[in-house]
Computed example of a mutant assay.
Amino acid sequence: MTLEVSHVVGGYSQIPVLKDISFDVKDGELVGLIGLNGAGKSTTINHIIGLLTPFSGTISINGITIAENDQLYKQQIAYIPETPVLYPELTLREHIELTIMAYRLNQEEAWQKANELLKTFRLDNKLDWFPSNFSKGMRQKVMIVCAFITNANLFIIDEPFMGLDPLAKSDLLAEMDKKKRAGASILMTTHVLETAQQYCDRFVLLHDGQVRVEGTLKELHEAFPDSGESLNDIYLSLTKKAGQTE
């Protein structure tokens, strides 16, 4: 098992946004973290990557918590944020070199992976470009390339399809599938529920800082038998019922 979130209560200052949430992401599995704006998805991610410390509960990757070994914990994670974060003074080439150094990767092997990914995402002729030259979609592709050259055990991908054209979206899904088949775990947030339904192995549905339900699409159907067939139908049914009880 790669990621285990156990009874986590957390948030900002002393205000609990997450209310005793628990879920896991196993090896070779793509899990969709689904929820409306404000449901707690970003707060959950910020706790997993170490930007926030839980008030209580534990988060571990392959049995290691950030408190036990900060460096080893973080080296197991590759994170693609919703909004690309690039250094304006570094070229694409230098971003890749920085990633290689940060993750202590083998230079030759990492650049071989990088060159393949650069061709896939049509960035191979832009190695000496600076972020100011890139569109939002191209910046997103830079983040994708830097994440996928690593040997991370856990990939956290936040709203990955924002700004990507249909071809880049297809390429990203193919790369995610390769990582899955190699045994990596992926936690993905997205509002594109049709795509999530097609590609995710399991789902964690967040509402108001709580895990309302988790499982495969079949298990979600069993939990909400009166909802429609799609993930979108199930989530709408969940949020409406939750709103009626609050």
Rank of each mutant, 00 (worst) to 15 (best):
residue 6 S to Y: 09
residue 12 Y to S: 08
residue 16 P to T: 01
residue 19 K to L: 10
residue 22 S to K: 00
residue 22 S to G: 00
residue 23 F to N: 02
residue 28 G to Y: 10
residue 33 L to A: 06
residue 37 N to K: 12
residue 37 N to G: 07
residue 38 G to P: 13
residue 42 S to D: 09
residue 44 T to W: 02
residue 47 H to Q: 08
residue 49 I to Y: 02
residue 53 T to A: 00
residue 53 T to H: 01
residue 56 S to A: 08
residue 56 S to M: 08
residue 56 S to N: 02
residue 57 G to W: 00
residue 59 I to S: 02
residue 62 N to H: 04
residue 63 G to N: 02
residue 63 G to M: 02
residue 65 T to S: 13
residue 66 I to D: 01
residue 71 Q to F: 15
residue 74 K to D: 00
residue 79 Y to D: 07
residue 80 I to F: 04
residue 81 P to Q: 04
residue 81 P to R: 09
residue 84 P to D: 11
residue 84 P to S: 14
residue 86 L to K: 06
residue 89 E to G: 08
residue 92 L to N: 12
residue 97 E to Q: 13
residue 100 I to C: 15
residue 100 I to F: 09
residue 103 Y to L: 14
residue 104 R to V: 12
residue 109 E to N: 09
residue 113 K to Y: 02
residue 115 N to C: 02
residue 116 E to Q: 06
residue 116 E to M: 07
residue 117 L to Y: 04
residue 122 R to G: 12
residue 122 R to K: 14
residue 123 L to Y: 00
residue 124 D to Q: 15
residue 126 K to D: 10
residue 131 P to G: 06
residue 136 K to Q: 11
residue 139 R to S: 14
residue 142 V to C: 05
residue 143 M to C: 15
residue 152 A to R: 00
residue 154 L to A: 09
residue 154 L to S: 05
residue 160 P to I: 12
residue 163 G to F: 10
residue 173 L to Y: 06
residue 176 M to T: 09
residue 180 K to V: 13
residue 182 A to T: 11
residue 188 M to Y: 15
residue 190 T to F: 04
residue 190 T to L: 03
residue 190 T to D: 13
residue 192 V to Y: 01
residue 196 A to C: 06
residue 199 Y to F: 13
residue 201 D to E: 05
residue 206 L to P: 01
residue 209 G to D: 12
residue 212 R to H: 02
residue 220 L to W: 03
residue 221 H to G: 02
residue 221 H to K: 09
residue 228 G to H: 01
residue 231 L to A: 04
residue 240 K to F: 07
residue 246 E to H: 10
